[in-house]
């Protein structure tokens, strides 16, 4: 038999692709609803991003509206809000990264050292619980607890001889309240992933270290932490990539006219200008600016992590 020519191979491949498609047509039918959903609700909105460079007229539709170049971006960069939004969004993002990121790691390391399975499960059950509270309820609890007159936090402060602050109307306090309440709610849940990574560490490493006389602390430092380092790096990359992606939901609920100066972030600004004031093109431009910066951050941090020889997303 002679060797097949390139065209013949291609034809053969084509035929086998077609054959396997015919054989598995039912699988494609199953997949169809999700594909339609994916294209309509995720990729079609991406097509709508072009409105950032257009003046949107509802009658002309997305495609028919006239191009205006970078007009909306220009307006955003020149506006009084620009630096305030950038400062707040970045400030909250960094604060969350610095304070919120290490806590679940420490918690996981601590839970991992608990020998009794009952206690271990109990601690996990309790610390996961706040994750299931809705954002609205969390915001409501924050407001009740921090009320300067009747809130339990204020009562404790008074008991200790301090003066209660109006945490929610004082711009200086906003970021702290936001970040610490987030830590309270998510530290347990975020620790699951590290606990999973810890359970994958080879017990023989610990056995060997124990024989060599390593203390518990030394074993955590030299075995557990390096063992979960890849997980930590991956999550750090993802976190760094969303540093400007401060979510809308909680900020919006805790926001009021008095703390707006430090609580207004890009996502709430997009909501106000887009949904409430119907300046669609402008809001899309602001949102696009945000996503692009996020993407750049993600790629950069990933690049650094890869160069540093550790793990990376791709």
């Amino acid at each position: 038999m002679g060797a097949l020519s390139a065209t013949e191979i291609r034809q053969l491949n084509k035929r086998s692709v077609w054959k396997s498609f015919l054989k598995n047509w039912r699988l494609y039918v199953m997949l169809a609803p999700v594909i339609v959903y994916l294209l309509v609700f995720h990729y079609w909105p991406m097509y709508g991003i072009q409105l950032a460079f257009k003046d949107f007229f509802a009658t002309k539709g997305i495609t028919g509206s006239p191009w205006v170049g970078f007009k909306h971006f220009q307006r955003f960069f020149d506006s009084y809000y620009f630096w305030r939004l950038l400062k707040n969004t970045l400030g909250i993002g960094l604060y969350e990264l610095v304070v919120g990121f290490p806590v679940p790691i420490m918690l996981a390391l601590m839970i991992n050292e608990v020998r009794h399975n009952f206690y271990k499960r109990f601690i996990q059950t309790v610390t996961y619980m706040p994750h299931f509270l809705s954002t609205v309820v969390l915001a409501g609890m924050i407001m009740i607890f921090l009320d300067p007159n009747t809130g339990i936090v204020s009562l404790f402060i008074k008991l200790l001889g301090g003066t209660p602050q109006s945490f929610l109307t004082e711009p200086a306090w906003f970021k702290t309240v936001f970040v610490l309440s987030g830590v309270w709610q998510q530290m347990g849940w975020s620790s699951i992933i590290y606990l999973a990574a810890l359970s994958g560490i080879d017990p023989q490493l610990h056995e060997a270290a124990r024989v060599d006389g390593a203390s518990r602390l030394q074993r955590i430092w030299h075995i557990n932490i390096p063992g979960i380092m890849p997980t930590i790096v991956i999550l750090l990359i993802l976190k760094a990539g969303s540093i400007l992606g401060v979510g809308f939901e909680k900020v919006f609920l805790l926001q009021n006219d008095l703390n707006l100066q430090s609580s207004d972030v890009i996502s709430t600004f997009v909501y106000r200008s887009g949904i409430q004031q119907a300046q669609y093109s402008f809001a899309i431009a602001v949102d696009l600016f945000n996503s692009v910066i996020n993407l750049i951050l993600l790629v950069t941090v990933n690049f650094i992590a890869r160069k540093a020889g550790g793990s990376s997303l791709w």
Partner: peptide
């Protein structure tokens, strides 16, 4: 299943980039 990697890639893209609030609202 031929083409499953394409679908997976399309999924992953949406996790890092999206049309955003307003285009979804308009849709």
């Amino acid at each position: 299943l031929v083409g499953r990697n394409v679908v997976m890639a399309l999924f992953v893209v949406t996790m890092f980039f999206s049309g955003g609030l307003i285009p979804s609202y308009l849709l």
